[in-house]
């Protein structure tokens, strides 16, 4: 479903601030894979996601989504294949627009926008139904401006928006990092349910080792722009935090020193 081949990404080339964010990263995702991607600050997790989404172009290598070479496509063109949820709850929705308008924008992802009315009555029923499944009481608030909703509610809406028009790949960029622990766990459970119900191929970046182990069928750890660990199947199911730390140490030759990951 997603194939990344030998991707390099260098920021600020030719200056003193030159930084190689991705070094020869290759990754193939099968349909239905749910990968959790973990690593310290500056490991290249978000850069990888942004390269897949087309926010940045890559300097070398290629990216294929559903057998289509998207390496040269712009961000908005790739959006036809991708559902995305960002770390910042403010980023996934248009705050001055009402809830149903946001959903309607997402339903038409990847389609040409014409002069038909922006929302049909039929859609409204679908939205109400889908929102009621979230269990946040949002089905009665279709006409509320999104800026009046909480961060957790907005992230849940962004998730729903990302999955409304079933994407080839769902990209989650630490989408619970800005939420309080209780809300984060609600949103994570919702994430898992939506992925399961829709059979979505998912790449989820997280800082939290326990979440990385608990969710998904495959775990990837990045460090210094490279993929260091790729654990899947039975092995992934039996994985513990201690073992993950030990394996990271022996693979990279250094200790995994990231306080947020250790404390969580």
């Amino acid at each position: 479903m997603l194939r990344i081949d030998g991707v390099y990404k260098v920021f600020n080339p030719g200056t003193v601030n030159q930084k190689t964010a991705l070094r020869n990263v290759s990754l193939t995702m099968k349909e239905g894979d749910f990968i959790t991607l973990i690593g310290g600050n500056g490991a290249g997790k978000s850069t990888l996601l942004n390269c897949i989404a087309g926010v940045y172009g890559v300097d070398k290598g290629s990216i294929n989504i559903a057998e289509v070479d998207v390496t040269k496509l712009t961000e908005y063109k790739r959006a036809a294949f991708l559902g995305r949820v960002f770390q910042d709850p403010m980023m996934g929705t248009a705050s001055d627009m009402i809830l149903e308008e946001n959903l309607a924008l997402a339903l038409r992802r990847g389609k040409a926008r014409g002069l038909r009315w922006g929302i049909s009555n039929k859609e409204r029923e679908v939205y109400r139904e889908l929102l009621s499944h979230l269990g946040l009481g949002l089905e009665h608030r279709l006409n509320v401006k999104v800026k009046l909703l909480s961060g957790g509610q907005r992230q849940a809406i962004t998730l729903l928006m990302a999955t409304l028009n079933k994407p080839k790949v769902l990209l989650l960029d630490e989408h619970t990092a800005a939420l309080d622990p209780k809300t984060a766990s609600i949103v994570l459970d919702l994430t898992e349910r939506l992925i399961h119900e829709n059979g979505l191929t998912t790449l989820m970046v997280t800082h939290n080792m326990r979440d990385a182990i608990r969710y998904g069928n495959r775990l990837i750890m990045m460090h210094d722009g490279r993929i260091f660990l790729d654990i899947q199947g039975e092995e992934k199911k039996k994985l513990t935090v201690e073992e993950l730390l030990a394996r990271f140490g022996s693979a990279s030759g250094q200790e995994f020193s990231y306080d947020r990951a250790l404390l969580s």
Binding site: T74, Y76, M91, G92, T93, E101, G110, R113, L115, R116
Partner: peptide, 26 residues
């Protein structure tokens, strides 16, 4: 016009361009 699909996309662009690009709008 601003109630149509195109008009909604223009309104959203002024509000949050990141979200709009993620929804496949130029």
């Amino acid at each position: 016009f601003f109630g149509t699909e195109l008009g909604c996309a223009i309104r959203a662009t002024g509000n949050n361009p990141y979200m709009v690009r993620a929804q496949g709008i130029n």
